[in-house]
């Protein structure tokens, strides 16, 4: 026994075993099962083999493409918002500008939204974006002289509401990531640069951004996945999965509608498999392009 435990060859495998088991039970098995189910029609646990009929139906389904488009544009826009804005905020917090106490308070309060329940927040946002003239957002824009907007009935204003939720919820978290990344950059670089006469802006683009690259890659990766997998925000904002013209329907929302609401688990599995392929394709391309898979030395 002792010999086994002290075995140098075996030890590494023992240490990664919990991880491998978790992956196998919670990832690999469901994945294979989903793929098998995607080729079946399932009624009350009775499966019947269909081949690729579910995928064929998916290809021709207008609503699927709409959901895919909704998810993709949401993902892209969250990237546009949730990478630069938190990066700038983190730089401000990390700089010597302003009082430490105020910045400390700011840091803490920015993080609070991430800790609140999306269910509660979604309901609050739904009421804020109400189409009646007494809704909060309508009162704000009325103050600036614009008429009431039917926020959750028009495509773009509905998207705007979803982006506001995303921004509200994730800015703090991303700021923390960037702050951690910033604090790992040695101060010497900045000192040397300022002795050479580089301006603050030049320093930001030539020292901060390149040194933050691992953090940026990480944030982009989780944002791509998070954006494509978004469901609950839309579900709460539209009080269910039925938004006008499916404008708030995401690809996961579509999966949920098909599998859970319409009892078509086989078809829903096909949606899930397609989502996985898309997410992996985007993420792997992006990781390869940014050189994450290269070895440390050759980078």
């Amino acid at each position: 026994m002792r010999k086994l435990l002290y075995n140098q060859k075996l030890a590494p495998y023992l240490f990664v075993l919990p991880f491998l088991l978790t992956v196998a039970v919670f990832w690999l098995f469901p994945l294979v099962r989903s793929f098998i189910m995607s080729t079946q029609e399932i009624i009350y646990g009775q499966a019947e083999f269909l081949g690729f009929a579910n995928y064929e139906r998916l290809w021709r389904d207008r609503v699927f493409w709409k959901a895919l488009w909704n998810s993709l544009r949401y993902m892209l826009l969250t990237l546009v918002l949730l990478v630069p804005i938190p990066m700038i905020l983190a730089s401000v917090i990390n700089s010597k500008v302003g009082s430490e106490r105020i910045k400390g308070f700011f840091k803490a309060s920015m993080f609070v939204p991430a800790l609140t329940s999306v269910v509660v927040a979604g309901i609050v946002f739904r009421l804020m974006f109400s189409e009646t003239s007494s809704g909060m957002m309508n009162q704000i824009i009325e103050f600036f002289g614009f008429g009431p907007v039917r926020w959750l009935r028009e495509d773009l204003t509905g998207l705007f509401a979803l982006l506001v939720i995303a921004l509200w919820r994730w800015t703090g978290v991303n700021t923390m990531y960037f702050l951690a990344g910033l604090q790992a950059i040695p101060q010497d670089y900045y000192e040397a640069a300022s002795i050479d006469g580089a301006s603050k802006i030049k320093q930001f683009f030539h020292i901060t951004v390149p040194n933050l690259k691992p953090t940026i890659v990480y944030v982009v990766t989780i944002s791509v996945y998070g954006g494509l997998a978004m469901f609950l925000e839309s579900f709460m904002l539209y009080a269910g999965n039925m938004s006008p013209n499916n404008q708030g329907l995401t690809i996961v929302g579509y999966l949920y509608r098909k599998g859970i609401q319409e009892n078509d688990l086989g078809f829903a599995s096909a949606v899930g498999v397609v989502l996985l392929v898309i997410v992996l394709a985007i993420n792997i391309t992006q990781l390869v392009a940014t050189g994450t898979f290269k070895k440390e030395r050759t980078r």
Binding site: R153, N246, E262
Partner: peptide, 18 residues
């Protein structure tokens, strides 16, 4: 009926009245 109802409530009636 469930898919018909779903489609009308999300898309068709919106196209018609909105």
């Amino acid at each position: 009926w469930p898919p018909v109802d779903n489609l009308f409530r999300t898309v068709t009636l919106n196209e018609l009245f909105e």
